[in-house]
Simulated assay, not measured.
Amino acid sequence: MNYKNITVAGSGVLGSQIAFQTAYVGKFNVTIYDINDEALERAKERITNLKPYYKEDLGATDEDLNAAFDRLTFHSDLAKAVADADLVIEAIPEVVQIKTDFYTELGKMAPEKTVFATNSSTLLPSQFAEATGRPEKFLALHFANEIWKNNTAEVMKHPGTNDRFFDEVIDFAKAIGMVALPLHKEQPGYILNSLLVPFLEAGQGLLLNEVADPATIDKTWMIATGAPLGPFAILDVVGITTAYNIANAKAQAGDPHFVKLANLLKTEYIDKGKTGRAAGEGFYKYPNPAFAKADFLKG
Rank of each mutant, 00 (worst) to 15 (best):
T267F: 02
S11E: 07
N245K: 13
T61M: 05
F291L: 09
L206C: 05
F291G: 10
A129W: 00
F128G: 08
Y190G: 14
D163T: 10
A60H: 06
G230D: 06
L14E: 09
G239L: 03
M156F: 01
A279K: 12
R134C: 11
A243F: 13
A180I: 10
D64C: 01
S120Y: 05
N248V: 08
V88G: 09
F199M: 08
E210G: 00
F172M: 07
R42F: 00
T61W: 01
A153R: 03
A68Q: 02
G230P: 08
T225W: 03
D295H: 02
K272R: 13
P256V: 06
T152P: 00
K51G: 01
A140N: 10
T161R: 00
K174M: 13
L229S: 07
G189N: 12
L196P: 04
H184R: 14
K55M: 14
I92F: 08
E268T: 04
M156S: 09
P135A: 03
I246E: 07
F20V: 04
Y53K: 12
E41D: 14
G133F: 01
N150E: 06
A85K: 10
E56Q: 15
G133M: 04
V259F: 09
G239C: 05
T22G: 06
F143D: 08
G10C: 06
A247Q: 07
D236C: 02
P289T: 00
K51I: 09
A233N: 04
A85F: 06
F165S: 09
K298F: 11
Q17M: 08
A23Y: 05
G226R: 06
E186H: 02
A81C: 09
R71V: 07
Y190A: 10
N145S: 05
G59H: 05
N29M: 09
G282Y: 02
G239W: 06
Q252S: 10
K137S: 04
K27W: 12
G203P: 12
G10F: 01
I18K: 12
D34S: 11
K298R: 14
P188F: 02
A224P: 01
K4G: 07
S126Q: 03
Y53P: 00
V238R: 08
A251E: 09
E186A: 06
L235A: 15
M178L: 11
Y24F: 15
I147M: 13
L141V: 02
G59V: 08
E90H: 02
F143A: 05
A243D: 13
M109K: 15
D57T: 12
L106R: 04
D213E: 14
V155I: 13
K27S: 13
D171Y: 01
D167S: 15
K285E: 12
Q252G: 06
K4Y: 10
R46K: 14
A290W: 01
K157Y: 00
A227Y: 13
F28N: 12
L265A: 06
N2V: 05
L58S: 10
R277M: 15
L192W: 00
I191V: 15
K260S: 11
F138Y: 13
P287G: 01
V238W: 02
A262M: 04
Y33F: 15
A262V: 03
N248I: 00
N151T: 01
T73I: 07
D86L: 03
P214S: 08
V96F: 12
A9V: 09
G160T: 06
L123F: 04
G282V: 05
E90Q: 09
A251T: 04
A117R: 04
